[in-house]
């Protein structure tokens, strides 16, 4: 069985023909950069061939769904686990109307780091199609094998939602299996927690020095969907414009707290960051605390209620 791009196309076409949706959002090739796939929307059944589904579809779609459906457009979304959770984050935040999206679940085999593949094995991009062999992606018909251990995208390493959840329909394509690379999502968090406090600060301080405060992490994040970001406001000036350790601290502290209990762990923030700031280590810390302190199971799955908008009478009281 191949990776079944035709099945994806067929379903997308059917949705458009049946007018269940006005458009379908997926990915397309970049005409100039062979390793790049960018989000792409097709409005006509005849154009579903423009969509692509291969190991290089790195970008998350959820945040785009938000912008595209704002005007009432009904959108079919090719949704991997991370995309679906992101869309649900936006639905629970009342930023996407449930009836405006049709989630076409794509079981995901994990995505490859296109740049690295291009550097090490450019001929892989000649493939006509792909198969998922668990530990490898295999190109058809060339038979080139790409080991996931070497090429998996950082954000896919710790993924626990390869199987798309809460979708309207799940496509019977390869992928969606258990992720062998994800043994302990909180490993990095634990490592940091175990460092002595001054070294912990030094770790973050090093990253504060690199952070450009370009806000790319916020722009791609499905949980950062406010009409007006408090960090942009002048009155009150939650965050001063001056860039220093203290203000960088406040920026990252506020961002982490605002997504606490809401982050879907799609890893888009860190992927989008031009300096590679370990935003995931902040997000997962919040997740871990939601689990440890409030017993939230699977804190990355969006719920109608948020842990920080709730309380329990027997919440821990560890301030003594």
């Amino acid at each position: 069985m191949s990776w079944a791009l035709p099945a994806v196309d067929a379903l997308a076409a059917r949705l458009l023909e049946d007018r269940l949706v006005d458009a379908v959002l997926g990915w397309a090739r970049d005409p100039d950069l062979p390793w790049q796939r960018y989000p792409h929307r097709v409005d006509e059944p005849s154009r579903v061939g423009e969509l692509v589904w291969d190991p290089f579809c790195a970008p998350g779609l959820a945040k785009l769904v938000f912008r595209m459906t704002e005007g009432g457009l009904k959108l079919g979304v090719l949704a991997r686990g991370c995309d679906a959770l992101g869309v649900w984050r936006l639905i629970h935040d009342r930023r996407i109307a449930r009836e405006n999206v049709y989630l076409l679940g794509l079981p995901c085999p994990g995505m490859a780091d296109g740049v690295r593949v291009w550097e090490e094995c450019p001929e892989a991009f000649d493939a006509a199609g792909w198969e998922d062999h668990g530990s490898h992606w295999v190109a058809v018909p060339t038979g080139i094998r790409l080991p996931k251990e070497r090429f998996l995208l950082d954000k896919c390493l710790q993924c626990q939602v390869r199987w798309p959840r809460q979708c309207d329909e799940v496509l019977a394509v390869q992928g969606g299996s258990w992720n062998p690379f994800c043994e302990d999502r909180y490993r990095q968090v634990r490592q940091l927690e175990e460092l002595p406090l001054p070294q912990r600060f030094d770790f973050w301080r090093g990253w504060f020095e690199r952070c450009l405060r370009c806000f790319a992490c916020r722009q791609v994040c499905p949980a950062c969907n406010c009409e007006s970001c408090s960090l942009d406001q002048f009155e009150p000036n939650w965050l001063e414009r001056e860039v220093g350790v203290a203000t960088q601290f406040i920026f990252h502290f506020t961002r982490a707290l605002h997504v606490a209990g809401r982050c879907v762990d799609c890893g888009e923030c860190q992927r989008a960051c031009p300096v590679g700031f370990p935003l995931g280590a902040l997000n997962r810390k919040m997740m871990k605390d939601m689990e440890d302190l409030f017993g939230v199971r699977e804190p990355f799955v969006p719920q109608e209620s948020e842990p920080l908008g709730e309380f329990a009478l027997d919440d821990p009281d560890e301030f003594r």
Partner: peptide
């Protein structure tokens, strides 16, 4: 408080 500690 936990986040503060985590961030040093």
């Amino acid at each position: 408080r936990r986040l503060l500690a985590y961030m040093g």
